[in-house]
Each structure stands twice: as structure tokens, then as C-alpha cells.
Design a protein around this nucleic acid. Structure first.
Length: 271
DNA sequence: CCCGATTCCTGTAGGC
DNA sequence: TGCCTACAGGAATCGG
């Protein structure tokens, strides 16, 4: 599932084929994504230069000379640079074709992703305006998490997965970061100490950066822009390891559902 | 405001 | 072998 590291991997892969170049054409085949793709985006963006490719949370921002595109990979999306002409499959919903005729193809079997156009600064789009802090920026601190969590009762796992608090932490990396920090996912976020939030913030940063270095996590669908899988899956400590032995102690990894999401943790190491 | 449940979608896995 | 159901989850939305 594309979370922040997978989006970052995708972005790095497609950047050489888009940033600084003109978009010759946008070819949309399926307009029925997470939100309907409305309006004549094709004519808005064709001939426009990509001035910057940027990630914000799990969103990909394609800044154009005027306005920009906003792409989300949902939970099964990928963007791939085609090496040779391949006929599109039924889940290949749109292509971006650059000035050299190179094709960046968007595939998303479950259609949870989106393609939006805005004539304004994409960062100020209503979908992005309420996003929380970037976890890899200097603004992301344990102290900030601590302050935002006061008087709240949600489980800490739900808290760090809330995009209005931190942008880009999804189900897999939430479990992994909580394990690394030794914090139980079911603890009420408002009752966790400042010190432990410092450990947690550091763990989130560490897990995300490690995953980026390994090209993200591929469980089923995810591939980077070159079509290869990420290999962070082999580094997962708890996710998907129910019943297996904890890496740090003799206990077994437990699974429990928190906010309708599978959550994996060590009941002994994570307090 | 805060929080949990529900919703969208389709491929895959497991049961019978 | 094939049908059926449950499950996976990002994020918006709704209801309490």
C-alpha cells in the first residue's frame, strides 16, 4: 500500500521524466476514481511545463507554470515510466506524456486514488490545506505530538495515522514505528508522556527513512517508477507477523483491529 | 471538537 | 474446479 515511502519512491522515479519538461499530453481513460475527474484537464495541462514535483503527505503534486496536478495512489496505485509501447490494461487509468513522448502510466486497480487539477497553488488545494506536519521535516517533533494529543482519547495508533496530525503515516508504518518506540498501539494518546512521544517521533522518522532507502514496501501492487518492487517488506518487524516470535523478546506478535485496521504489536515490549 | 463506523473498489485467499 | 465470502486499507463523511 502506498504510504509516504512508496510515494517518495515513485516521485524520485518519475522526476527525471517530468520535472523541467513540458507535458505534451494527458490521456485519461477512466474518470471514475476516488473523486470523479471533472473538467477538461487535458487542455489545461497540455503544453505546460512542470516546474516542480513535490510530495505532501501521500499526495504527489505536479506544479505547472499555472496551477498543477494532484495525484494520490490510494491503496493500490502506482506510476510507472514505460520503457516501450505497452497497450494499457483495464486498470491503467491515465497517462502523462512528456515532450519527448515518454509515457508515465498511472495504474490503480481499486480506484482509491485520485487525479485533480487546480489552477492555483496545489499546496493550497482544499484537500491538502488541513494536512498535518511532514514527518521528515524539522517541524515534526515529539513535543508537537505531545501537545496535540492532550485531552484526546483515541488510541495512539489512530492518532499518528490521522493525516491532520501527521501527513503520510499509514497502517503499516504506524505499527512498525510503535514497535520501534516500544509504545503500545492501544494506549490512549492523551495519556502518553512527553518523553515517549519523543521516542515515537524519532521512531516514525527512522522507519520512514529506512523504507525510503529500500524503495518502499511491496505487499501486492506497489511498484516504483521503474516497475520494480520495494523490498522493505523483508524488514518489517511486526506487520503481518501475527503469531511469530517478537524480534526483541520471547513473546508472540499479536494482531488486533483498531479503528477497522489490522494492527500488529508485541504485547510484552510495547507498553 | 472528537471519535468510531461506514463507504468507495477489486484482487486475492480461504472455506466448502 | 468453482463459487462464495471475508479481507486488505486511505481518507472523506456521517452520526453520536
Amino acid at each position: 500500500m502506498p504510504e509516504l515511502p512508496e510515494v517518495e519512491t515513485t516521485l524520485n522515479g518519475i522526476r527525471p521524466f517530468l520535472q523541467g519538461l513540458k507535458i505534451a499530453r494527458l490521456h485519461i481513460r477512466q474518470r471514475n476514481l476516488r473523486w470523479p475527474v471533472t473538467g477538461n484537464l487535458e487542455s489545461e495541462v497540455s503544453g505546460s511545463r512542470v516546474v516542480l514535483l513535490q510530495r505532501r503527505g501521500k499526495y504527489i503534486l505536479v506544479h505547472l507554470e499555472r496551477g498543477g496536478l494532484i495525484v494520490h495512489l490510494g491503496m493500490s496505485g502506482s506510476m510507472r515510466v514505460l520503457l516501450n509501447d505497452e497497450s494499457p490494461g483495464r486498470h491503467d487509468h491515465f497517462d502523462i506524456i512528456n515532450q519527448h513522448g515518454q509515457i508515465i502510466r498511472y495504474r490503480d486497480p481499486r480506484k482509491f486514488g485520485c487525479l485533480l487539477y487546480t489552477p492555483d497553488d496545489p499546496l493550497r488545494h482544499p484537500r491538502l490545506i488541513g494536512l498535518g506536519v511532514e514527518p521528515l521535516s524539522d517541524d515534526f517533533t515529539g513535543h508537537g505530538l505531545y501537545r496535540l494529543s492532550r485531552k484526546r482519547t483515541a488510541p495512539v495508533k489512530s492518532f499518528i495515522m490521522d493525516g491532520r496530525i501527521v501527513a503520510g503515516v499509514g497502517n503499516i508504518y504506524a505499527s512498525e514505528a510503535l514497535f520501534l518506540a516500544g509504545v503500545s498501539p492501544i494506549r490512549q494518546c492523551g495519556k502518553i508522556s512527553r518523553l515517549r512521544y519523543q521516542l515515537l517521533a524519532e521512531a516514525i522518522r527512522t522507519v520512514l527513512m529506512r523504507a525510503i532507502r529500500q524503495g518502499g514496501t511491496t505487499l501486492q501492487d506497489f511498484v516504483g517508477a521503474d516497475g520494480t518492487s520495494g523490498y522493505f517488506a523483508q524488514s518489517l518487524s511486526v506487520y503481518g507477523r501475527e503469531g511469530e516470535k517478537c524480534l526483541k523478546c520471547p513473546a508472540g506478535i499479536k494482531r488486533r483491529v483498531i479503528a477497522q485496521r489490522s494492527t500488529f504489536y508485541c504485547p510484552r515490549c510495547q507498553i
